[in-house]
Design a protein around this nucleic acid. Structure first.
Lengths: 340, 340
DNA sequence: CGGTGCTCTGCAATCGAATGCACTGTTCTC
DNA sequence: GAGAACAGTGCATTCGATTGCAGAGCACCG
């Protein structure tokens, strides 16, 4: 026999499907006699009845699903976030549809389109690029969304972001505390908000602490990748500027530095310290283990999901945003400068 | 205005909804006058019509979604697989619902239950534990599924598995080629099929190559983890058996070995070689970079998704299984034995 | 005892698309 | 030129659950 329908349950319990529906639905259960409700529920259970979410969705126009728009699941940054999201979504009866955009705007648009046609009730967007036209349009069309890792400036969209500025500040303070005075920064791509925020925070912290504020100490990487990081560091090294420590825009960029260290025989941390950002897995297995700023990835996910569910429950509550505190994980890639 | 429905399109094109439906659906388009079809399609496009998959699904009882059952997305093994799956699913108009089981049988059952009530059209199962009762039951109930990373013995379910035996063989051959004769194996947990298969392949390869086949050279780890790996290696070392190389059950176990090397001042690769398994990210950043057997994760995903889609298209085709070839990635953790 | 209010249940429409069946008008065949 | 075959379209029903509305039954009050 097929999976039983509401009709079957109603029939078996000797009531009208409508009554069965009300009895089974906690929010309408009050409309039905307590005894009847109990009976219906029992019958439903014994029949192994499972409401068909598709049929329900058709009538209620709720799909029970939300879209997760991320650049690339393969990037170690995202799995914990996704995991956090799912952990909140699932008990709430929702599920997440993941799409990968590879940070390609066209793909992003197409994917979001596809999600919308799948009737998702909301979007959790973790792509850095979402260009404003699209974002504006989505907001106008009343698409519920929460941004992750990025705070959309000017637009009123709830977001969960790590406190990047504070993170960089901690990194610089740590290095300054070790005695470094000339610290370089390999900034992330300038078309990403995180890249910009971190670079800005770097400059201001350097100034606040009275360290050498030399514009030549800051380079920007073209991508958030090891290769770009390596390239940027080589450039910096070749330019002849002097520095004893590097604050990398993220861990991958820091890994790129490791490559250059190996290539040029630079001893990290004795002649050069490095700090990463994100705390991706296995950094503790590197030689030397990378000091980095840890982001509470999973928490970002849970918070984002909660925010979205709140938004679904109460469509016109004001956009609330959350800034999550970070922690510095000191490992082996930072030490006092040789000449300290 | 709301998103247009089929009715709107039909009305705007001056035809009956049924005709519009047929015109829009490639498989029924032949029933409609070519001109009419063209007109309808054009109108649909200009209105930005998107068929509502929920409504469609209700009638056709196809949800356009499949379930991905994995232990933990956070495990670096899975993101590439999931990515591969999504890459195949998406162009086919399907999407994947991910659930994490944490390898807890109860959770697994509950999650699969939840997926089924979501009307998934099939399951891609990557959990190692799926106990047979559940698996049997699913098969009996006609749930379409594909297994990944694990070949269910005795039961007729299509699967995509890396050729673990061949992988281990390559690892051992590589070490033998370097001159190692006493090679140890830190096997994965015996309740996982991969653990068993790899251990078996290790023994038989050692024998085939005429190396020292000493049972004392094989230990089993309790978990697929760094700690377990470290523990197992310590045990082996303390037992006094001699060996110059280790084939680890997987990369995490190999990482555990690194910890022990650091702890006991063992020089890898000069006094001890190690080979891992899986090729998780960033192994090339370790000191020394870990030699390992690479699994085509993403390809596993794409193949699995393809297999599942095939199964959906042709429900009673025989179960087909695929064994994927692996490659050995030689890096810095293997070298000739000192006394070679 | 009639009226009012209330609780509980049933009826029927609805969500959006798909589809079997019936109908119309055209073309083809003998 | 009559009848058959057929292409093209419309009508109405269906999928499974939800929900506004109406009606039945009952109790309570004046």
């Amino acid at each position: 026999m097929q999976t039983p329908t509401l009709r079957d349950v109603a029939h078996a319990a000797g009531v009208h499907p409508a009554t069965a529906s009300r009895a089974l639905n906690p929010s309408t259960r009050a409309l039905v006699n307590a005894d009847t409700a109990r009976r219906v529920i029992k019958v439903a259970e014994s029949l192994g009845y499972r409401p068909n979410p598709i049929a329900r969705g058709l009538k209620t126009s709720k799909s029970g699903s939300v879209g997760l728009v991320i650049p690339d699941l393969t990037n170690p940054l995202f799995p914990p976030i996704v995991r956090g999201i799912e952990d909140v979504l699932e008990p709430a009866g929702y599920s997440g549809l993941i799409v990968n955009t590879d940070n390609d705007p066209d793909r992003e648009q197409a994917q979001i389109e596809s999600l919308r046609s799948r009737q998702v009730e909301g979007l959790i967007v973790a792509t850095a690029l979402v260009h404003h036209p699209l974002l504006e349009q989505l907001r106008r069309e009343g698409v519920l969304m929460v941004m992750v890792n990025r705070r959309p400036d000017g637009i009123d969209v709830p977001s969960i972001t790590p406190d990047d500025a504070a993170g960089i500040q901690m990194a610089v303070q740590h290095l300054a505390g070790l005695g470094h005075r000339r610290i370089a920064h390999l900034a992330g791509p300038p078309n990403t908000s995180t890249g910009v925020v971190r670079a800005r925070s770097f400059r201001s912290t350097v100034r606040d602490l009275g360290l050498d504020d030399d514009p030549a100490l800051v380079t920007t990487c073209r991508y958030w990748s090891e290769d770009s990081g390596a390239e940027a560091l080589r450039e910096l090294l070749d330019s002849g500027v002097e520095f004893t420590a590097v604050v990398a825009g993220n861990d991958l960029i820091a890994l790129g530095c490791y490559d250059v260290f190996a290539e040029r025989g630079i001893d990290c941390p004795r002649t050069m310290s490095v700090v990463g950002f994100n705390d991706i897995p296995f950094l503790d297995k590197l030689r030397p283990p990378l000091t980095t700023v840890a982001i509470p990835h999973q928490q970002i996910g849970t918070e984002a999901a909660r925010l979205l569910l709140d938004g679904i429950a109460e469509p016109n509550r004001p956009a609330r945003s959350v800034l999550l505190p970070l922690t510095l994980v000191v490992r082996g890639s930072t030490a006092p400068p040789r000449d300290a």
